[in-house]
Every structure is written in C-alpha cells, then in structure tokens.
C-alpha cells in the first residue's frame, strides 16, 4: 500500500490513528492483535478506542471491525459468534475490546448475559479508570480518591469516595473459564495472556491497565513507568484465574509505597497535601489488602 512501510506492513493495527500522545490503549490494541492473529472479528463499544480509530474514511484496522453502542457490544459479539458457529467457521474468533465505562457500568448487563450463556467470545477491557474521551467522568473502575470531573476535589470532597468495582472476581463468579488482568507496562505478559485466552473456548475476560496521560495527568513519556509503579505498589494486581480459582500471579519483586504511584499523577495530587494523609493511609491499606489477597509478595 502506498505510504505504508516498516512497522506497518504486516501490522493489524497501523499508524495514523488519532490517540493522544503516549496512549497506553493504542499500544495495548497493537499487541492484543499480534497475539490473536488475523483471523478475528473485533467488536468495539463506544469509548476512546472507537473515537480515535474511526474518523470517517481513516481506519487503522486491518481486521474486520464493528463499532456498537456502549451497552450492547457483548450482545453483538455473541450474535457474531453464533453466526460463525452456524456457518461452521471455527477458525474465526470474536474479540471485544472495550473501555472500562462500557464494561464496568453501561454494558455490564450484556456482559453478564454473554458470560452466563457461555458464548465463545474473548472480552478485553482496557481500563483507564474513567470516561476519558468525554473528559474524565467517574466510572465504576475509577480508583478510590481519584479526582474526576464528576467527583472534583474541593473543600468537602476528596474525589471518588467509593471502591473500584472488583470486576475480575465478578466475572470469575459466572464460571468463566479464563479471567486475567494485565498491564501495558508488561507487554510480554499481556501477549502471553491473550495467547492463552485464545486457546480456550467459551467466554474469556482480560482486564488491561492502560495509563492515560491526559486523563491521569502525567507527562506522556512516563506512560509505561506509571503502569509499572501501579503494579509494583499493589494497586494493580496482575493475576490469572482459571475455572474460578487463582492459578498464577505476577509477583512484586520490590514493593513500593503507594505514594510513589500517586505523586506522579495530578488526579491524586490532593492526597499529598496536609489534609490528605488519612486518605493516603486508606489507599495504602487497599494496596496491602491486594498484596495479601493475591499473595503478590513471596514470603521469605
């Protein structure tokens, strides 16, 4: 193709997409498609990915791709999987790549239905912790005490007071054969998990932590560093669950305090001021609970 060379020649998701500088999501999509191979149909609910990959006439996709509404992407994916099954085209698989808004909040009912029916769909949630393409409103995935445009920090508010929804556990409780969490900061781990998920049949769920420079408030070159800090402080546990039981976790080699992760982002900057210390303690407790729950540190 004219004007296309090097890294774009073989890729299934190419340059020229309109994601922000340093977008973790664009990077994740490229590696997801490298792991799945070309024989997939991608379904994308409304969200950042849909917005930056579909200005009219300029598509970065080289696999069949369909955009659907916030609330029904899993249902659309189920329909495509059923059609492929009726045609006996078992070599083509269906992948949903949706944001946290559609997965945790708006499309949750359809997701739950898809999991309960046991449709052969790989659901990937790229979690950037808010509705970023509309300006950063809170979602069910927004971490506790993060400042968002609908939970702004002020005299009587320290950001979102609720806990982040534990969606991997909810999905695993549906009897889903494969549930995993990953981070773009650990790309080999991410690719291995997607490859592993492709070997299963039935519903599968992977949640990927994708740092968002404009929404989280950090300089674009730090995107992967922030991802690593999140994993190593315990706020973003990376694990795999097969048939409802925890089978593998990514251990933390050197544990960091949550302040290391929080101070790099402007959405948490209010916690580092004088009156934020008790809220900081609560976040440290959440991280410590994660570490204990998933045994993220090898006891020696």
């Amino acid at each position: 193709m004219n004007g296309e060379r090097g890294a774009n020649k073989e890729a299934l998701f190419v340059s020229g997409h309109r994601a922000c500088h340093g977008c973790g999501l664009a990077l994740a999509v490229r590696h997801i498609l490298k792991a799945t191979g070309p024989d997939v149909i991608v379904v994308t609910p409304t969200g950042c990915l849909e917005t930056f990959s579909s200005p009219y006439g300029y598509s970065p996709w080289r696999v069949p791709w369909i955009h659907h509404l916030f609330e029904n992407a899993p249902a659309v994916a189920s329909g495509i999987a059923a059609a492929l099954s009726a045609q006996k085209r078992n070599n083509v698989r269906v992948v949903v790549i949706g944001g946290d808004g559609s997965t945790f909040d708006i499309g949750f009912g359809a997701l739950s239905g898809m999991l309960e029916r046991g449709d052969d769909v790989l659901y990937i949630c790229t979690d950037n912790g808010a509705y970023m393409n509309t300006g950063g409103q809170r979602s069910g995935a927004t971490p506790t005490y993060s400042s968002t445009t609908t939970h702004p920090v002020g005299r009587k508010s320290m950001g979102k007071p609720q806990l982040k929804k534990d969606l991997p556990a909810i999905v695993a409780d549906h009897g889903t054969p494969y549930v995993a969490t990953a981070s773009v900061a650990y790309l080999k781990d991410l690719r291995k998990k997607v490859e592993k998920a492709m070997t299963y049949h039935g519903p599968r769920y992977i949640q990927i932590d994708t740092p968002c420079p404009s929404g989280w408030g950090f300089s674009s070159e730090l995107a992967l560093e922030i991802g690593r800090l999140g994993v190593n402080c315990g706020l973003v546990p990376l694990f795999e669950m097969e048939n409802g039981s925890l089978t593998r976790v990514r251990k933390i080699r050197k544990k960091l305090q949550v302040t290391e992760y929080l101070k790099a982002q402007s959405r948490f900057k209010h916690l580092l001021q004088e009156d934020g210390s008790e809220y900081l303690k609560e976040l440290q407790e959440i991280a410590d609970q994660n570490i204990a729950k998933y045994a993220l540190i090898t006891s020696s």
């Binding site: 090097g6 890294a7 500088h21 340093g22 990077l27 070159e221």
Partner: peptide
C-alpha cells in the same frame, strides 16, 4: 519498537529508524 504507541520504529541493519510521518513525539 515494542513500546511505541504510534508504531513508528523501524529496525534496520545498523540502528533503529524513526518514521517521522507518524511520530507524535510522546517521548516514550
């Protein structure tokens, strides 16, 4: 090459080459 979110890095014999047509300059 692995980390570029705009997929601008090309591998050549001597060193890497950056495709400035697509590089947004994120600095990763």
């Amino acid at each position: 090459y692995w980390y570029c979110p705009d997929f601008c890095i090309q591998m050549t014999e001597e060193a890497i080459k950056i495709d400035y047509d697509y590089c947004k300059g994120c600095g990763i």
